[in-house]
Write a protein that binds this DNA or RNA. Structure first.
Lengths: 252, 252
DNA sequence: CTTGACCTTGACGTAACGTCAACCTCTAAC
DNA sequence: GTTAGAGGTTGACGTTACGTCAAGGTCAAG
């Protein structure tokens, strides 16, 4: 009337190791244990095991399974919580799937792992006049010399860092968050840190860009469509400006 | 020109612990290490880190990330494999979601965790004549006595075991698998083991039911609609019969 | 000189078993 | 009686990607 550990494992479609584990954690004890230490299971244990397997196939964890078996009336509640879990997981996977597909498409379109052919925030030949006009020939010269001194890899590094930041700005804007909120302010902080790495920024160096320079840039993003394009259009640029302005008011 | 571990962690939106981990596994080494042992990261490391974070957000594991970073041309292949992964996972979750919903509905409909109001494979009063006719009065008496000797819990145990097995038969049939294939044969094996536990089965006891009894039952499942109902109709019963027949040919 | 804030390495915990390793037990055959 | 083989037992490590202490150095500021 009872079975050895392997027999019951086969009956229920599992392994003896699993049964030992369930015994260890107190989820399913054998009906009796022989004087030789062998575990033997009876029909009652089999039913319990089959219920365990059923719940496990639904994706419940062992603590949840134990909970349900202990008091069966909790089953609906436990299952509903679990269902929410599953739905959230599925949505997360759906988002990842979309992202991966987009990334594959981008790679096949010849792009690299992070867009680097995007707007070059340091194309000083293009912005020479504006920079000299606003912050002086000296600032331009220092910044330009620093930029020219970098190797291709380093340049790409900076571009990619900017690319990532810009992508995050766009995503933040798309989600419609508050420019003065924590998330947007964290982005403004990153923007600040990024600028901090560039010699020649007024008030720059370790201290970071000056309040005026920072605010000036923010306005430039809105005023100049060449910048605005990096943030998904003028609306995006306004969002960035608002966040940067709030940041400057608060921190600089 | 470089950052401490916390600074770069914030820049990339992660934690210092993660960076130490990446250093440990050789995924991302700091640009330099101070004489005090402090880790310092430069722009190049930042770009690499941001790429790592990008790939991680797509759901890739660290070995896959390392693989992609090592040789970027492998990225499309790695991403495509990963995509398959994701899709399979999503499908698995979809199935679990359906199962959980069905289970909740069943529970709310007043059913217990495993259907036990289903066909009672041991309702010998109902099958008395057939059993005696086919296998003799003695077989019936022994089987009946054994059944009557069990407590309600034990009876339920057997019923539930049968219920689970039947559910698996139905599921297997719905998936359209081969009755002679491994999966269906495993079910036939379970059917055999289940019968083995019933005293009074011809050729029964530890040895299990005889070939003739087993084949006879298989045919009865098809011939008698009261049985067939347990397998989702006569089609399901035919599937079970075919699997059991193949099993008998092979094993008995 | 004393706080704090920040850094280091080391080690345990996580979920649910899979997979040895070392050793004991039972059955059937020689 | 012995021996081989199948099956049982208890450890204990491995798996994934870090989170979370713990114990103890380092650094800037008051």
């Amino acid at each position: 009337m009872d079975w050895s550990i392997q027999e019951i494992a086969k009956l229920a479609g599992t392994t003896s190791r699993t049964l030992r584990h369930y015994d260890d954690i107190g989820l399913l004890a054998p009906a009796r244990i022989g004087s030789n230490g062998y575990r033997y299971y009876d029909a009652e244990a089999l039913v319990r095991l089959q219920r365990i397997m059923l719940l496990r196939e639904l994706g419940l964890g062992l603590p949840a399974v134990a909970d349900v078996l202990e008091r069966e009336e909790r089953a609906p509640h436990a299952l509903r919580s679990h269902l929410e879990w599953l739905v959230r997981e599925q949505q997360r996977l759906a988002r990842q799937i979309v992202s991966v597909e987009r990334t594959i498409d981008a790679l096949e379109g010849g792009e690299r792992l992070m867009a680097e052919q995007m707007f070059d925030g340091f194309d000083h030949t293009e912005y020479k006049e504006e920079v000299e006009q606003r912050w002086g020939a000296d600032a331009y010269a220092k910044s330009d010399a620093w930029w020219r001194s970098m190797g291709a890899d380093e340049k790409r590094a900076w571009q990619q860092r900017l690319a990532s930041l810009n992508a995050d700005w766009i995503a933040a804007h798309e989600r419609g968050i508050d420019p003065a909120g924590d998330e947007a302010q964290a982005l403004a902080q990153r923007q600040f840190e990024w600028l901090r790495g560039i010699p020649g920024t007024p008030g720059g160096g370790a201290a970071g860009p000056s309040r005026e320079y920072f605010l000036g840039l923010a306005e430039m993003y809105v005023a100049d469509e060449r910048f605005g394009a990096n943030y998904g259009g003028v609306d995006g640029a306004r969002f960035v400006r608002d966040a940067m302005t709030a940041y400057a008011e608060r921190e600089l």
